[in-house]
Simulated assay, not measured.
Amino acid sequence: MTNQAAYPLATAPNFRDLGGHATSDGGRVRTGVAFRSDALDRLDAADVRTLGELGVRQVIDLRTAFERESRPDALPEGIDHTVLDLQGDHSTGADLVQVLSDPGRAEAVFGDGGATRFMHEVSRTLVTAEDACAGYAEMVRRIAAGAGATVVHCSAGKDRTGWAAALVLGILGVPRETISADYLASNERLSRLQGTMRAACERSGIDPAVIEPMTECRLAYLDEAYGEVERTYGSFDAYVHDGLGLEEPTVEALRGRMLA
């Protein structure tokens, strides 16, 4: 039987609260303030009502233009829908679909470890790319200033949203091992994504094992992002203040809203 508390949205299986985690100094992250999720395009009427009951007032959409146009969010009326495209509003989603429809190209791009290399590149780009830094900074500002609860999401809720969660929890002082566990918790919620990708591979005659690294959260991907933080900025605090350009009043406002 599905645990309704763990899976509050039946039609968005990777939706979950960012709260409840203990911080290094003995505090705790408040529940009901910020949520992370996969795409919200398939929400049924019951889940739309649940978003309202949870006090959600803003949704931050990290997807590309292609993803948003092909799968627009289904939201309650009155919710502020903010687009923060971390990838420069280009057609990454469309490109992936095109690659998977061509077995030869898919093998060339993702075979022989290419899918794993691609995921490591994604992890680095989310830390250093100008669009990603601007988007994540604005996300933090909006959560810090929000009048109600905020949902942050991408398509699967594992990579772009995974780093979004790591960023917020890191600012709040949640230990890295806890952040890693939260990141890996997506793996038990990705069956829909994995089924979709397997089906795409079957249609094109591609071995699903070729793209398996792209359908999972692996600690190596998160570690790659943290490594990029250290290589580029020297420390997580420098990333927050210099890389993202977040000022201390914003950081303190986030902590004030989200720490019990």
Results as ranks from 00 to 15, higher is better:
N3L: 11
R176D: 10
D102Y: 09
L254Q: 05
R105N: 06
L169E: 01
G243V: 10
S37Y: 01
R71H: 14
A144W: 01
L54G: 04
D25E: 15
E230M: 12
E202P: 05
G78I: 02
I179D: 02
E177R: 13
S235W: 11
L100R: 05
R198C: 00
T92C: 01
D17I: 06
R203E: 15
R257H: 05
F110M: 12
V48I: 14
G88C: 06
R57C: 06
A164D: 00
D89Y: 01
T250I: 13
L18Y: 09
A22N: 13
D102F: 04
D223P: 10
V59T: 00
A115S: 07
A5S: 15
A6N: 12
D242P: 05
L254G: 05
R257F: 03
S70Q: 12
T92H: 11
D112R: 10
A45T: 15
A94R: 14
F35N: 05
E177K: 09
L126G: 00
D89H: 10
A74P: 01
R160K: 09
S91G: 09
R257E: 01
R124M: 11
A74W: 01
L190K: 03
N14I: 09
A129F: 04
A145D: 14
L219K: 06
L9N: 06
Y7D: 13
T116W: 00
P13W: 08
H120L: 15
E130T: 15
L190V: 02
Q4C: 04
S24R: 15
H21C: 13
G93R: 02
L169R: 05
R160V: 10
Y239S: 07
A225G: 12
G111M: 10
S101V: 03
R42K: 13
T82W: 02
A5G: 08
A39V: 12
T23M: 11
I206F: 10
F110N: 04
M119Q: 09
L246T: 05
T92M: 14
G52I: 06
R68V: 13
G32Y: 02
